[in-house]
């Protein structure tokens, strides 16, 4: 039979056994935390999966001094900053529109949202075809307007921006939906008060909606920034890092070095990505949260 319930057990923590944490955390630690920790060691070695030779910081030096790899760091920055920056602005206006007094907003919201459920590979394939230099729909559309469109993915000066455009197309949906949630949770009385004060539609957006969606905005920035730092799938499908190394980012270099058997360099790339995330994303989040708290 059950033992008498001790007073400690009723109010205390003992019914919430730590054993409940064990399965999830064993999996998480073995397959995520442990690899993360040993990556610090392997990034300083020349290794295959059987043996390793310690070489200190040589991999990092090679990575940073070889053009085909260091360009990845620059591109990763451009990618993360542009995708998060543009999404956060565009999505705001789409969300303002979709929360306005329009009749078909539910269908429109669904249309905007759907790309989020389609895999990056599928979207990459679609846009690769749409951006085809001669047959692609984009350049045909431009031709109708008398503009001769560039080779979107073949020109090394614009290829990265073409992929960034596609990333924004795909990621706008989730950003918009986060903003919609933020906007619909704003108390209507703010708008009524603004109306009594004679605010115009634009002023209401500027002085009510914009400041009161700060937490949505921060979420969008952080999510798309972190996503941008590790982006791989769209780039890999659309350009494979080319032409040349023009669209290589850290994640694609990690894969290329791995495929060529340079495991130490690949791991070093992984550690650089980890470090960038830690150096940039954590302070960014702390900064945004502090601003939000004010």
């Amino acid at each position: 039979m059950q033992k008498a319930v001790k007073p400690r057990a009723r109010t205390g923590d003992s019914i919430y056994s730590y054993w409940f944490l064990v399965p999830a955390f064993v999996i998480f630690i073995v397959f995520f935390i442990v690899p993360m920790v040993i990556s610090l060691y392997f990034s300083m070695t020349v290794w295959d999966f059987e043996s390793s030779r310690f070489v200190g910081l040589d991999n990092f030096k090679t990575f940073l001094s070889t053009y085909s790899m260091s360009i990845g760091i620059k591109n990763t920055f451009i990618y993360a900053i542009l995708t998060s920056g543009i999404k956060v602005i565009l999505a705001f206006f789409i969300a303002v529109f979709l929360t306005g007094k329009i009749r078909s907003k539910n269908i429109l919201r669904s249309i905007v949202f759907f790309p989020n459920l389609v895999s990056a590979i599928a979207i990459g394939i679609a846009f690769k075809a749409l951006m085809h230099p001669t047959n692609g729909l984009i350049n045909r559309g431009l031709a109708l307007l008398g503009i001769s469109g560039p080779d979107w993915l073949g020109n090394r000066n614009i290829a990265l921006y073409s992929v960034i455009f596609t990333d924004i197309w795909k990621g706008l949906s989730i950003a918009t939906v986060i903003y919609i949630a933020g906007i619909t949770s704003i108390d209507q009385s703010y708008y009524e008060a603004a109306e009594i004060d004679g605010a115009t539609g634009w002023q209401k957006i500027r002085y009510v909606t914009l400041p009161l969606t700060a937490s949505s905005r921060n979420t969008v920035i952080i999510l798309s920034f972190i996503g941008g730092l590790r982006s791989f799938e769209l780039i890999w499908t659309m350009t494979g890092g080319g032409p040349g190394f023009a669209t290589d980012v850290l994640a694609s270099i990690i894969y290329k070095q791995y495929a060529q058997g340079y495991y130490g360099l690949s791991t070093a790339g992984n550690v650089i990505m980890l470090a960038l995330t830690a150096i940039l994303a954590f302070p960014l989040q702390a900064f945004l949260n502090r601003k939000e708290g004010k």
């Binding site: 730590y18 998480f28 935390i33 993360m36 040993i38 392997f42 990690i254 690949s266 791991t267």
Partner: peptide, 26 residues
């Protein structure tokens, strides 16, 4: 302390990308 530490680990997991080749090694 245990749950605080566990939460910190999760925070790291949310932000930091996976370390791929060391995972294959494991």
């Amino acid at each position: 302390k245990v749950t605080a530490f566990a939460s910190t680990l999760l925070m790291i997991g949310l932000m930091i990308p996976a370390s791929i080749l060391p995972t294959i090694w494991v």
